[in-house]
């Protein structure tokens, strides 16, 4: 019924009385690239944990394309079309980038179809194309543990895309990257945003300014503090108080 791709209502998650998320309301249109910022402990990662089924909400609900995600397990949510990239790159280190992508890109994820199905002919090309996109073609067949940090980040984004989800959740994609790599990842995300809905969680303000063409959401103490264009958010006194702190450095 609703046209929203993601709707979150009154979401509260408490761990032993500590409310990591507190009556959070959030919604997002299909095709949007939304950046979520907020100081440490604002509940950004818990927010993703709830959407992907890692943590169950104490109160409230999360709906994806109108479907309640409560009581679904991680793999079911993934199959609905939500892909997640973790804060530290989590790829399968003993496998090659090509194999990593092929595992994520597999369309039939049951036990016997994984064992018995022939690989569709198009899959090889899709994967080669993806390797090209994330710039890993020369290193496609060495174990992923030999990749640099930035390459691992890009590979994980590639794995996300291979799943062809409708909604990508990307947690701090540029942590620990050089400026040049950061810009590459930024451009990669902007390209992906043309065909996917994306939520990016990020600390790096430079990077946020690069990619935040639309709405930015600020989380603070488990709820939404404010929402708006990057410029408005940046000048909002509440935001400056809780998060940006050193306002002068933002004016470069």
């Amino acid at each position: 019924m609703s046209a929203k791709i993601l709707e979150i209502e009154d979401l509260t998650v408490s761990f032993d009385g500590f409310k990591a998320l507190n009556q959070l309301n959030f919604s997002m249109e299909p095709g949007e690239l939304r950046v979520i910022i907020g100081p440490n402990g604002a509940g950004k990662t818990t927010f993703l944990d709830v959407i992907t089924g890692k943590v169950q909400p104490t109160i409230g609900s999360a709906r994806f394309k109108g479907k309640n995600l409560k009581a679904l397990s991680e793999h079911q949510i993934c199959r609905l079309g939500i892909g997640r990239k973790f804060q530290t790159p989590r790829i399968f280190l003993k496998l090659t980038p090509r194999e990593n992508l092929s595992l994520s890109g597999n369309r039939y994820k049951g036990v016997f179809s994984t064992l018995l199905n022939k690989r569709p002919t198009g899959e090889q090309q899709t994967i080669s194309g993806l390797l090209e996109t994330v710039g890993l073609t020369p290193k496609a067949d060495i174990p992923a543990e030999l990749l640099s940090h930035g390459e691992k980040q890009r590979l994980e984004i590639g794995m996300l895309v291979a799943q062809s989800p409708d909604l990508l959740l990307v947690d701090e994609p540029v942590a620990g990257l050089t400026d040049e790599e950061t810009e590459n990842v930024g451009n990669l995300l902007l390209t992906l945003a043309e065909s996917h809905s994306i939520i990016v969680i990020e600390h790096d303000m430079e990077f946020v300014r690069q990619i935040a063409r639309q709405q930015v959401t600020v989380l603070h103490q488990g709820s939404v503090l404010c929402e708006g264009k990057m410029n408005d958010v940046q000048n909002d006194p509440r935001v400056i108080e809780v998060y940006l702190g050193e306002a002068p450095s933002m004016d470069e």
């Binding site: 992907t52 890692k54 397990s73 991680e74 793999h75 993934c78 199959r79 892909g83 997640r84 973790f86 989590r90 790829i91 399968f92 280190l93 003993k94 496998l95 595992l103 994520s104 994820k109 994984t114 794995m159 799943q163």
Partner: peptide
């Protein structure tokens, strides 16, 4: 091998 090395990542990949 993926399950051995990072089982919860496998879940998030849809398996």
């Amino acid at each position: 091998i993926a399950i051995r090395d990072d089982e919860s990542r496998v879940r998030f990949s849809g398996y």
